[in-house]
Design a protein around this nucleic acid. Structure first.
Lengths: 232, 232
DNA sequence: ACAGTCGCTTGATAAAAGTCAAGCGACTGG
DNA sequence: CCAGTCGCTTGACTTTTATCAAGCGACTGT
């Protein structure tokens, strides 16, 4: 791991308040590793030996049941994933695979748990992180239960537009197939959902999406901070 | 609040390790209140002033968007709810209403946050609680995204059967209307879902459900600990 | 006792989402 | 260069789910 990466990780709210020496102890026995795209990092049901942190690239968290598979979320740098399994010392509930070539830092679960007991500020940071994760997934749950597929897509596009701030020109950050799985629809259905949004000024060509008039789309999508605002 | 109630709350994993004096400080400024059925305790979007704990009765956590409403979860004694909003000092993401006549203990958010800073063992307990909540809702998400309505019902019945341990005789703990909302279907559809399960030995009469042969239902429902086991 | 409401069920119908099949264009490896 | 694969789209069709309407029985308040 390059010193710059160490610095980036240390900047996470989770570790920011930690004394340098404690952070070094935390990292003892960690691995920093580069993986190619589409490598499975974690299989659901396995025991949570390591806390994972995406330093570079991207990771898909997904799950299977019978012959179905669904994407739960996408982890982008710099962020942790599967924190909850680590603190509970329990089996992972989700699998994880790299989206692109990615750098991953793996910290032994044991280190996290002991650091938490030693350092109450770190405990507080963990509480904060877990609460944030919980709220994210509650929003995802509401999104899923209260909205139709087309509505989920419309609101997703508005979020991208807000993130990318490029005046209605949005580029999808990954394959449509994956987007479909994240939004809980089939790829065929996603295609049709884009077509449905055409009258609201949405034009797609490959990964580039143009939102002619965000106001129109907004009136259709009816976003609310209690579902769509990443903070809050 | 009766001394017995205090003892029950103190028994929660969240508070168990806390010294008695600290627990008293935590409860300073708390309210213990009885509410009739169907009273709204919390409105989503409001600021999280209090941590709520169900001492008796039951509470439905739900959410609205446009003209839709959905149940996110049910809180039964003795348990906390909306913990995440409290620690983030953020708006509630869900509304809450009593299901039956209920006793609720309300602890000022501020007390929780200061207790967390003062007492690192309490911080650890909070981490544990939040991680458990997170894992619960991840399972709910998988349940929702990977299974059909009938499959969700079948697995729900199996869980009730395991909880109630009454040899295939199960009693639904609340109205079918609410169950439908929890399972993300309409009441009409829930009726039909019960009918669909008839060939697998499921017979309904009002709130009483008889599972003639749990093995049959199990083969249909294909439960997995990674979705259906409340612990794990 | 009675009208009124409410929870639940059933049937008919409509809308949403999934499946199957085909085709197109981009990339990939021999 | 070419065959093969893969992501994506479109069309036809099926299945699932929601909506609308009606009816039944239990409970409620007058």
């Amino acid at each position: 791991m390059r010193p710059e990466n160490r610095r980036q990780v240390k900047e996470l709210t989770l570790f920011r308040a930690m004394p340098d020496a404690a952070f070094d102890r935390l990292l003892a026995g960690s691995f920093f590793q580069r993986f190619p795209a589409h490598v499975v990092l974690i299989r659901e049901g396995d025991l949570a030996d390591f806390l994972h942190i995406v330093i570079d690239g991207g990771v898909e968290l997904f799950s299977n049941w019978r012959d179905h598979e669904t994407t739960i979320s996408i982890a982008r740098p710099i962020s942790t994933f599967i924190l909850a399994a680590v603190v509970k010392d329990a089996p992972y509930l989700m699998s994880a695979r790299t989206l692109d070539a990615s750098s991953i830092l793996m910290i032994p679960s044991e280190n996290i748990r002991t650091a938490m007991l030693d350092d109450s500020a770190f405990g507080v940071a963990m509480v904060d992180e877990l609460a944030a994760c919980f709220r994210e997934i509650v929003k995802a749950q509401k999104n899923l239960k209260l909205r139709s597929g087309v509505e989920r897509l419309a609101n997703y596009l508005l979020r991208l537009d807000a993130e990318q701030r490029n005046d209605g020109r949005v580029v999808l950050p990954f394959e449509k197939k994956l987007l479909a799985s994240l939004l809980n629809m089939t790829p065929e259905n996603l295609s049709r959902a884009f077509a449905t949004l055409k009258p609201y000024g949405v034009a797609v060509s490959a990964a580039a999406v143009e939102i002619a008039n965000p106001g129109d789309l907004r009136r259709f999508a009816k976003p609310t901070p209690l579902i769509d605002d990443p903070k809050s």
